[in-house]
Design a protein around this nucleic acid. Structure first.
Lengths: 147, 147
DNA sequence: TATTGTTATACTCTATAACTATA
DNA sequence: TATAGTTATAGAGTATAACAATA
């Protein structure tokens, strides 16, 4: 098992391929999101904020995105400065900020989602829909334990 | 098609899952490689240099790794300073450096490969071998056009 | 003219530690 | 004592532009 891994080529290493594919998608998506004034990380936060009616705490955002809470602070700062999200105090815990998308934030998110979907489709153009679903299922399983 | 993408959750976005999974693998692999004095990027260059008997040009490395040639310069500098690779002049083109792993570089690579394989196996532990192969195949298809 | 490698620069992302206010 | 958010800092990764040597 280890011997096999040792003699495999880098071009067949799943870790390498994962990093390479991710890089391609992130690059293409950032390029597509630029005209909407967003980068991938901001788009992710904006999307999660829009999905939850009552908002999402920054702690939850950090967990969902696999980021350190301190990174979330800056992302929310940027989105708030652009008027795309708001920080609202939680009714039950005064330590907690609930991040909510504004009306304009939702509009921008919808248009940005189209651009991101196009960029993704371009990068995955060699996979048919069934293969995309399969890829999604496998990746979701890998990411699952991280929350 | 676009409407579907618009209303999907971020947690089912293949681009997001790709970035998340890649992050998990890179983090685990970097931690595993630390005791060998390597980071993922350096490990990748060292591995490619070891795979080609005659060495690999920096241009080829840049293409294979999806990096800018200027980034490869620094990675090769670091590996050369550590005595793990050498730059050899090409016999046919005096502009070209062929990057070759040293004997010690090959030893380090073999041990590092074991650590990297363990880290990867840990991250992919929720997939069985057939699913890993499937994931590899799908990712290879996505990465293929990039060379 | 085009390509290989190099240097330089700026920006983004990642990783830590320490601090505050609340629980 | 633990948790949510924040601030600060350093290091790694990414993106460009410009240049010298060579093809």
């Amino acid at each position: 098992m280890m011997e096999v891994a040792m003699h495999q080529h880098l071009s067949t290493d799943v870790g390498f391929l994962l990093s390479r594919a991710s890089g391609l998608v992130v690059r293409a998506t950032n390029a597509a999101l630029a005209e909407h004034g967003l980068r991938v990380r901001q788009y992710s936060v904006l999307t999660l904020a829009g999905e939850a009616e009552r908002g999402v705490s920054q702690r939850e955002l950090a967990t969902l995105l696999g980021l350190d809470p301190s990174q979330v602070v800056l992302l929310v700062d940027e989105l708030a400065a652009a008027g795309l999200v708001e920080r609202r105090p939680s009714a039950t815990d005064r330590r907690t900020n609930l991040v909510v998308a504004t009306g304009r934030g939702r509009d921008v998110q919808e248009r940005a989602a189209l651009a991101a979907a196009d960029a993704l489709a371009g990068t995955l153009s060699r996979l048919d829909p069934a293969q995309c679903d399969l890829l999604r299922t496998l990746l979701a399983e890998v990411v699952a334990p991280a929350g």
